[in-house]
Amino acid sequence: MSEKKFETRETAWCPGCGNFNILDSLKTALEELGKDPYEVLMVAGIGQAAKLPQYISANQFCGLHGRALPAAVAAKIANDRLTVIVNSGDGDTYGEGGNHFLHNIRRNVNITHFVHDNQIYGLTKGQASPTSVKGIVTEVQVNGNTTTPLNPMMLAIAAGAGFVGRAFSGRKEHLTAIMKQAIEFDGYAMVDILQPCVSFNKINTFAYYNQRVYELDETYDPSNKLAAMEKAMEFDEKIPIGVLYREDRPTFHKNNVVLQSGIPLLERTYDPAVVNRLIHEFA
């Protein structure tokens, strides 16, 4: 266990925001796993979720909207001793960053990705997000949202993710437990965390989620892909939370010849003999 604790700071989130519980659970998960804050890197893009690295004592990289994943996986490639955690929202991840979400599932770098999914845009004050329900009226979707919401669980499983989890910010202990599993998973692990947005989403409220979520128990087999797809489709009157799908796949580091050596990329020494040989290959 690390001696050093993770400190949290005052936030700029609205009172009642689901992010408070997510931040608390993450701090607990990291401490229970004995992580050293100096070896944790929090990566984020832009959005309410993406403010999280500002509020916890760790290394932080707050980059561009939608682009947290490329920066995060490359940081992990550069130094696999870092525990790399991405916090991003539903807009950041599934909208602006959709392409990176899809392809980093395939790339399978060992990072953890917590998607704060409140089914609405918070930072820009209440427009529809890729997971917003049909019919929701906003200042942009003035006649009600007509776009089919994305099912991120199905998408992640179909794209080949090795760890697909869902949690609810209102169930802190369960959330912490899922977070710990995701952080410990060797490969790309994503957890879609349902959370209320008290300011802008009057449909998917705390009560809405609280009535619907149920925890998957030990009778559920997360290694069955078809069953996982069926669970992922359950998103109406009942919403399963827990690890929906889990499969060990070779990570980017295991597949990459340079990284297989086990020497972190940033510590590789420079060998002039190799460079000279490459130069003289052109003779």
Binding site: F61, P70, A71, A74, A75, I77, A78, N79, H100
Partner: peptide, 18 residues
């Protein structure tokens, strides 16, 4: 996967020391 990813990856790697 695209040029945006390419540059953001390079920035992430550089930040982490590569």
């Amino acid at each position: 996967e695209d040029e945006i990813a390419a540059i953001n990856m390079a920035i992430g790697a550089s930040f982490a020391g590569a």
